[in-house]
Design a protein around this nucleic acid. Sequence first.
DNA 1: AAGAGAAACAACCGCATCGTA
DNA 2: CTACGATGCGGTTGTTTCTCT
Length: 221
Amino acid sequence: MEGRSSENKKGLWTVEEDKILTDYIRLHGKGKWNRVAKLTGLKRCGKSCRLRWINYLSPNVKRGNFSQEEDDLIIRLHNLLGNRWSLIAGRVPGRTDNQVKNHWNTHLSKKVGARMKGKGKVGDSSQALSKSLGKNLSTLSKSDFTPSPSGNEEGTRSQEVNEIGFEHHQSIVGLSGSQEMMKSGIDYDNCFWFSSDELDLQPPSLMEFLDKSLDFVWYGL
DNA sequence: AAGAGAAACAACCGCATCGTA
DNA sequence: CTACGATGCGGTTGTTTCTCT
């Protein structure tokens, strides 16, 4: 790549490096990762610093083994979303996309593989959901919940609504995989419905689908 | 006890997207 | 509109730890 990258250190982080990075973030906050090396003398590129913080040093990161509940949640979410690790991790408190991805690759894929022998395959529900939405779910992104820019007041409000809608979509995906949701059913009163006509998603059908999908996402049943 | 292979975890790389000047 | 830097994502690779012989 660029010549400068050869100056950057690679490989595992040392305790000293961790401390330098932690102190820096405590002082300056997250972001502007490319400044870290300049201001601290760390011989690490910005991307490396960011990753180290997000995946390891951040106090929000939960360490230790995954619980059975976490496993089940990840399995169901993966069946719905495919390899959208960041989305999945967003619904598993304290876990990062890298953790979820590694855990899936080393543990859960085998576990699911064993469960799924003769029961269809992982991703079936994702495909069905995609069909339901008229869009490949694996390509769903924030922009899919944002109307085309119009510049007028209505457009602005609609955009805000859809920003929230996207966040809520993520919540729905997480909630739909929770034990509580499965036991109690969906609390429609507390659900946010997309209000923009520009959205192809019809929330009730989405919710219905997610609800139904749990039956076959939940391999154990 | 030691070496080999497997498993688990951490980090890197390339690419895509976003924000902004 | 465009260029460019920052950030985020997913796949892959590298390193460490564990287990078995």
